[in-house]
Simulated scan of single mutants.
Amino acid sequence: MPLSSVRVLDLSRLLPGPYCTMILADFGAEVIKIEEPYIGDYARAYLPKIDEDSAFFHTLNRNKKSVCLDLKSVEGRDYFLQLVKQSDVVVESFRPGVMRRLGIDYETLKEINPQLIYCAITGYGQTGPYVEKPGHDVNYISYAGVLNMMGERNGKPVIPAVQIADIGGGAMPATIGILLALMAREKTGKGQMVDISMLDNVISWMPTLLPDYLATNNEPERGNIVLSGKLACYEVYQTKDKKWLSVGALEMKFWETFCKTIGREDFIVHLNAPTMIQDKMKIEIQKIIAQKTQDEWMTIFQTMDSCVAPVYSFEEMVNDPQVKARDMIKSGELGTTKHVGIPIKLSETPGEIRKQAPKLGEHTDEILMEMGIKKTRRK
């Protein structure tokens, strides 16, 4: 596997860090999850549970090993430093300053292992006035200006159902940063620090909005953005059976097909019309879509070259033939636990779900003995 020679020490908890190391583990890295004795990753306690750990934890921590170390103790710190000597990557998601107080910050670790890649995932990064500031996903997308753009015109901002900052701003760029640093090490022989700010990366997620503001100083209006509520061709409409259709007919050829299919060819010339006309078209289109069920509309649009899709529930999504064909919901391979599949498809060295998430401290004795470190009692 592409990362089979890479050993990762993962001190992170909950979502951003574990998602990052899940990707690395899926592609062969040996990910050793360093957990606090007796407590471990807080995500273990979430509901619903599969055995004594949560479904959430099982998904994010598959293919990993668990070692319990008390990093506040002299013994635990010493064991960790010995592990660092034999590892390639350290991932942590503490607030800046915590690792320094524990005596295991980047400056300390690079003296022990100059080839080490050290990745810190934080809300605001390692520099700037917000270094000590606490936060969650909703706070980071708020500072980034993203949340202010989400929701309907004249309404309040709407919190997204998925964690944009945690995944898109934290986990994914952390994974990319680690891989870039590993490639650089191949050339230089030196490790480096990867400083991931979730705020920074969410700001970078706005190439369709932010450059326009930077060029004109004109603030976009919530609900009046091309890809977020302005256009009738890019909207969600309710069907007769109280389900929904998403329409993404941005290009003229798709819009023309859509308008002809619903019997409103007069709308074709108004693809990019002013907001007032767009609002009127939305009302008329909604009246038409409400006359048939979601299945009836999908049967009609199935043979059309148009950007129309059903808005799925999870039950509908997991049973969709495209999702099944791409093996995105895996079940029955590791006991009774179902897993989200591996979205990155490599033709020659694919990722693989090899084993379930570890029990707390399951591999403590094994790893410490394997690396020639004094055996400790499993906590």
Score class of each variant (00 low, 15 high):
Ser5His: 13
Arg7Tyr: 03
Arg7Met: 02
Leu9Met: 10
Asp10Trp: 09
Ser12His: 10
Leu14Pro: 01
Pro16Ala: 14
Gly17Phe: 06
Gly17Trp: 04
Pro18Gly: 02
Tyr19Trp: 13
Met22Asn: 11
Ile23Arg: 01
Leu24Tyr: 01
Phe27Arg: 01
Gly28Leu: 00
Glu30Asp: 07
Ile32Lys: 01
Lys33Gln: 07
Lys33Val: 00
Glu36Ile: 07
Gly40Gln: 04
Asp41Leu: 05
Ala43Trp: 04
Leu47Trp: 15
Lys49His: 12
Ser54Phe: 03
Phe56His: 12
Phe57Pro: 03
Asn61Ile: 00
Lys65Ala: 00
Val67Phe: 09
Cys68Met: 07
Leu69Cys: 09
Leu69Ile: 05
Lys72Val: 00
Val74Trp: 06
Gln82Ile: 00
Val84Thr: 06
Lys85Gln: 12
Val90Asn: 02
Phe94Val: 01
Arg100Thr: 13
Arg100Ala: 13
Leu102Thr: 09
Gly103Ile: 02
Asp105Cys: 01
Tyr106Trp: 11
Asn113Glu: 03
Gln115Gly: 14
Tyr118Thr: 01
Thr122Gln: 02
Thr122Ala: 02
Tyr124Ala: 01
Gln126Glu: 08
Gly128Trp: 07
Tyr130Ser: 08
Asp137Met: 09
Ile141Leu: 10
Tyr143Leu: 14
Gly145Ser: 11
Lys156Thr: 09
Pro157Val: 02
Pro157Ile: 02
Pro157Thr: 03
Pro160Asp: 07
Ala165Val: 08
Ile167Phe: 12
Ala174Cys: 11
Leu180Glu: 12
Leu182His: 04
Arg185Pro: 03
Glu186Val: 01
Thr188Pro: 04
Gln192His: 08
Ile196Thr: 09
Ile196Trp: 09
Leu199Ile: 14
Asn201Trp: 06
Ile203Met: 15
Trp205His: 15
Pro207Glu: 08
Thr208Met: 11
Leu209Pro: 00
Asn218Met: 12
Pro220Leu: 06
Glu221Ala: 01
Gly223Ile: 00
Ser228Arg: 13
Gly229Tyr: 00
Lys230Phe: 02
Ala232Lys: 08
Val236Thr: 14
Tyr237Asp: 05
Lys240Ala: 11
Lys240Asp: 05
Asp241His: 13
Lys242Glu: 13
Lys243Leu: 10
Ser246Ala: 15
Gly248Ala: 14
Met252Trp: 08
Lys253His: 13
Trp255Ile: 00
Trp255Leu: 01
Gly263Val: 06
Glu265Arg: 15
Pro274Glu: 09
Pro274Gly: 05
Ile277Val: 15
Lys280His: 14
Ile283Ala: 13
Ile283Lys: 15
Ile285Arg: 08
Lys287Thr: 05
Ile289Tyr: 08
Ala290Asp: 11
Lys292Arg: 15
Lys292Gln: 10
Glu296Met: 07
Trp297Pro: 03
Phe301Thr: 01
Gln302Asp: 12
Ala309Val: 12
Glu316His: 09
Asn319Trp: 03
Met328Val: 06
Ile329Glu: 09
Gly332Leu: 06
Thr336Pro: 08
Lys338Trp: 11
Ile342Leu: 06
Glu352Asn: 09
Glu352Gln: 12
Arg354Lys: 15
Gln356Trp: 07
Ala357Cys: 06
Ala357Trp: 04
Pro358Gln: 04
Lys359Glu: 08
Lys359Tyr: 10
Leu360Arg: 05
Leu360Ile: 04
His363Asn: 10
Thr364Gly: 00
Ile367Thr: 02
Leu368His: 07
Gly372Ala: 08
Thr376Leu: 13
